[in-house]
Amino acid sequence: MSAIETAGLTKRYDGTPAVSDLDLTVHTGEVYGFLGPNGAGKSTTIDMLMDYTRPSAGQATIFGQDVRDDASAIHARTGILPDRFGVYGSLTGREHLDYILDANDATGDPETILGRVGLSDAIDQRAGGYSKGMQQRLGLAMAIAGDPDLLILDEPFSGLDPYGVRLVRDVVAAERDRGATVFFSSHVLDQVERICDRVGLLADGELVAEGTPAELRATAGVESRLHVDTDVDDTALTAVRNVDGVTYVTRTDAGVEIACGAESRYHALNTLADAGAPIRTFNVDTGTIEDAFVAMADAQREATRGRDDA
């Protein structure tokens, strides 16, 4: 059984689609990154999954239960950190956790849970005095309280310093290891690639592509680049351009940049050396999920303009 399943899920506001015909499957036990820029429709999708807003068309299920008909049962199995999370300023961190555990009829130790998100020293402070990052970590603690089967995190990196960002990654990994399904939206694409099993790219309310980060890079034609610190002349440039698998070569301030697949890298390096270009250092840029997203989003917008112009 899938953790999340949608079919033709659509939401329109005044006739304008925020989410269009979304077919999505999130497998039980995986970390699924739902990616896209602000305004792409990520939060609207989450609102429909949680029955905070009703779809204009289509349907969705969580653990086989209809998100509208079985909302209460779904909420009992789901921990959520919403994008616009707010604290109760007069309550302490401990009291927030006591409240959520009681509301969900769940067991758990507030001190242990808050310790996981780095708030042990602030457990009995009133949350109104928390910084934005501390409030975000409190929201994460409330989401994981009670060991939910599904964790939905909407922009979980918002307002966090590098320590907090790493902490979120560690919590997500621990929840997956526990057996939970994690579904989170983000526009911070470089962080997503480190922890996701699969990702879906959303652009203008439509699912542009889906797969592992490596699959999406390949689908989008994102090439790896070999950056070589060397002294290169025209003879060496010509030689490396003729290597099978090399798609382009260009000079840089440090030496040369070569676009090629993994199978061609060492042949390219050996060719440079044989042509008299000393290899001082080199590194490989494999391309990121952000590169894939930009390529696919641009293609989607071009396709949309083409339909509009037809």
Rank of each mutant, 00 (worst) to 15 (best):
D124N: 13
Q136L: 12
A180P: 05
G221S: 00
Q125G: 13
Q191E: 05
R137M: 08
R217K: 06
S90T: 15
V199N: 02
E175D: 04
Q135S: 06
E210N: 04
R116N: 08
G129P: 10
I80L: 12
L114F: 05
T78V: 09
V168F: 07
A174E: 10
I100W: 02
Q191S: 03
L189M: 05
T212M: 13
R169H: 00
R176K: 13
P213S: 07
A143N: 11
D161L: 01
D170W: 03
Q136W: 04
I100P: 02
L160G: 08
G205I: 06
G133Q: 13
A127G: 09
E215I: 07
S90R: 15
G89M: 02
I113L: 10
E111S: 14
A218T: 13
Y163P: 03
E206I: 15
A173G: 14
D109K: 14
S120H: 02
H187T: 05
N104L: 15
Y88W: 11
A203H: 15
A141L: 06
G211Q: 00
D98A: 13
V172L: 05
L91N: 06
R217S: 06
D102P: 14
A143Q: 00
P148E: 11
L140T: 08
L101W: 03
A143M: 03
R169C: 07
D204H: 15
L151A: 00
L81E: 01
R178H: 12
G93K: 10
L160V: 01
